[in-house]
Design a binder for these strands. Structure first.
Lengths: 204, 204
DNA sequence: GTTAGCATGTAAGGAGTTACATGATTTT
DNA sequence: AAAATCATGTAACTCCTTACATGCTAAC
């Protein structure tokens, strides 16, 4: 039952965040966006044109981006640029610290834009991801331990390698968290003087 | 406009292989299947009931599995078991060494069933995956090197960690490949002396 | 003068997830 | 007696991919 609000097909995956984030650094055309995306996330994810262009189209439609260049006439290089609405939307997305920011597919993108993210949110995302991974570690370990039957050596090797990979990421996160804490010398303290913590968004 | 015959949704992802592989080891009901799946792949992937049960349903429909237990009446524990067709289908899937076996989402599942896989195919999959990762490494490295503009430290750290992870997996694969070659003690070797008949020596 | 890379898009659909819906059995 | 976990399923939807379609420009 439950009529269900029929949520407007909102094109709201990580891709949207990635595009907003890159366009915030500087205006760009689609093809360049695509390459930057795949360099930035290289080892983790890839996006294809088939999702990028529709995403850009929809960003125009909802007014998060505007298109310079020559959209009509000669067909080459349509340069996209964030609107005020787009920037606001980006800030909202970057302010979220929840599963959507620390799940496997999303974490990389959120992390890539950490320099545009509030220090507190960064910390919550890093810790959120670490918790997530530790839970998974726990779950797998107990369920492996509980398994009476012996598994074949390949399955075992896969599990071993998987656990090791996850443990490695946990250590990485722990180091990052400690670094954050150290560089975050008592921000909650008295002064609100402009410390350099925030956006390293210099020119370009 | 050719409405297009609406190709019956064929349910042919990794999940199918995973289920076939587990059922080949022993008959099981859905819930147990689900747990085994998530233990086996724990660190890499997870599947939800929302995909598992439809998959089982379809396997019944196409005759790859049969259901014991009490499907009618009291509702508990429907035990699935592979049919001859199902076993054949599994063998076909396991014999494939192509992108579908070494891509990120699929490799883990294929690897998990390596003990049911031919040694030659195992080798081609391991090498296929390693090549894939090395290409990616290359691509990212050159495209990073080509980047004139300096990227912020978080993006950099993400790239560094990503590269390191991939390099680590490459080393892992290399070790596995060497182990495989060793345990495969000179099947093709002694070629200099034993192989007088020149071509077509197919080992098994 | 042909390959490779630049540049933009669309249609169809694949492979899964989320949220819902239900109930039995075991543990606390 | 409540909470957890066992057990099975469906409908709607999401996000992205593949394959197609087009044409320009630089390098070899």
């Amino acid at each position: 039952m439950a009529p269900q609000p029929a949520r407007r097909s909102g094109r709201s995956g990580v891709l949207e965040l990635a595009v907003l984030g890159l366009l915030h650094e500087s205006p760009m055309h689609g093809y360049e966006l695509s390459k930057r995306l795949n360099t930035m996330l290289g080892a983790f994810r890839a996006f294809s044109y088939g999702s990028l262009y529709p995403c850009l189209k929809q960003m125009l439609a909802v007014g998060h981006a505007s298109a310079d260049g020559e959209p009509t006439g000669s067909r080459s290089r349509i340069v996209y640029r964030l609107t005020a609405d787009g920037k606001e939307h980006l800030q909202n997305l970057l302010a979220e610290a929840g599963p959507s920011s620390w799940e496997d597919e999303n974490f990389g993108v959120h992390f890539a834009f950490f320099s545009q993210t509030d220090a507190e949110v960064r910390m919550r995302i890093l810790e959120g991801r670490r918790n997530r991974l530790e839970e998974r570690l726990d779950h797998v370990k107990t369920s492996v331990a509980r398994t009476r039957e012996r598994v074949d050596s390949y399955t075992l090797e896969l599990q071993r390698h998987g656990l090791e990979s996850v443990e490695r990421e946990v250590r990485w996160l722990t180091e990052l968290i400690e670094t954050e804490r150290r560089s975050d010398h008592r921000t909650t303290a008295t002064d609100k003087d402009a410390d350099s913590s925030a956006s390293g968004t210099n020119f370009r």
